[in-house]
Write a protein that binds this DNA or RNA. Structure first.
Length: 276
DNA sequence: CGATTCGCCTGAGAGC
DNA sequence: TGCTCTCAGGCGAATC
């Protein structure tokens, strides 16, 4: 699923391809994916030039001339695909929203989403500020070890649940959370405050390591995963996964069996031998 | 106020 | 074979 490395990969693809383009029309067959409404998104976007493509946590931000912004969340199964109009290659892949673009030659920005959990939301400065402030610091950016350790020490929640709480830390989803705990040799179900300073530092470093690997490899396309970059290419990070969806297989380090449990409603994978 | 549960949605896989 | 049932999953909303 699209987490920080996947969304950032898409952002870079888009930045190189659509900044300067003008939105000439918007189509959808699922108006509920647009807010405040399809009508208002269309009215505020058509005719506007795209001036920047940014990202905060897992949210893509398409800045339009005039100050408004389109916030895009891919949730579980969303994809952004840039295609020439009339190409049929995506016709069976759940196209839900199309932004038609003109930048010398025409281009389609297709938002595909099997589960329809994703959204396109028109935001003004005030709403944008609210979104930015509601999200925690980002790994590899403004997340510090001091804040990380302090935040863990304050909570009795399972530490993995806390790590995926976007208000506390942002951009970390289920794949990278599981991998970070394996890298740190820490069990994800431990109460956050039970981690020693040494363990939380290992976890902090584990998060940085797996997020960086994900970015360097243009994201993870796992089994049952819909992630593709903006040009339709799969990510290259799957070979780095050590535990995610590996339940029942041998641990690569100790030859124990990887286990799966449910934690906060989410699949949680770990090696009971390597992680403590 | 914090913690838990629900709902959104679909296809894959299981069960019969 | 083919139908029905269950489940995953980010995250906002409702409820306990």
């Amino acid at each position: 699923m699209p987490e920080l490395p996947e969304v950032e990969t898409i952002r870079k693809d888009l930045e190189g391809a659509i900044v300067g383009a003008i939105i000439t029309d918007i189509w959808t067959d699922t108006p509920k994916m647009l807010s405040p409404s399809f009508k208002s998104v269309k009215a505020e976007s058509v005719g506007k030039k795209i001036v920047a493509v940014k990202r905060r946590a897992k949210v893509l931000m398409i800045d339009l001339e005039g100050g408004k912004c389109l916030l895009i969340h891919l949730k579980l199964s969303g994809r952004i695909l840039l295609r020439k109009p009339l190409t049929k290659e995506d016709i069976y892949t759940h196209i839900k929203i199309i932004l038609k673009l003109k930048d010398g030659s025409p281009l389609e920005f297709r938002f595909c989403d099997l589960r329809k959990f994703g959204y396109v939301k028109l935001a003004n400065d005030e709403e944008l500020k609210k979104v930015r402030e509601g999200l925690g610091p980002e790994p590899l950016d403004d997340l510090t070890l001091e804040y990380f350790q302090k935040t863990l020490a304050k909570s009795g929640k399972p530490v993995k649940t806390l790590l995926m709480d976007q208000e506390k830390f942002s951009g970390i989803g289920n794949i990278y959370a599981n991998e970070a705990f394996f890298a740190a040799k820490v069990l994800p179900m431990r109460p956050a405050k039970s981690l020693s300073a040494e363990e939380s530092e290992k976890l902090f470093n584990g998060v940085s390591k797996v997020i960086k690997e994900g970015l360097d490899n243009r994201g993870t396309t796992a089994k049952d995963d819909f992630y593709l970059d903006a040009f339709g290419r799969a990510g290259n990070n799957e070979s780095n996964l050590k535990v995610y969806q590996k339940n029942g297989t041998d641990c690569l380090v100790c030859k124990g069996k990887i286990q799966r449990v449910n934690l906060g409603g989410r699949g949680t994978f770990f090696c009971p031998n390597c992680q403590h």
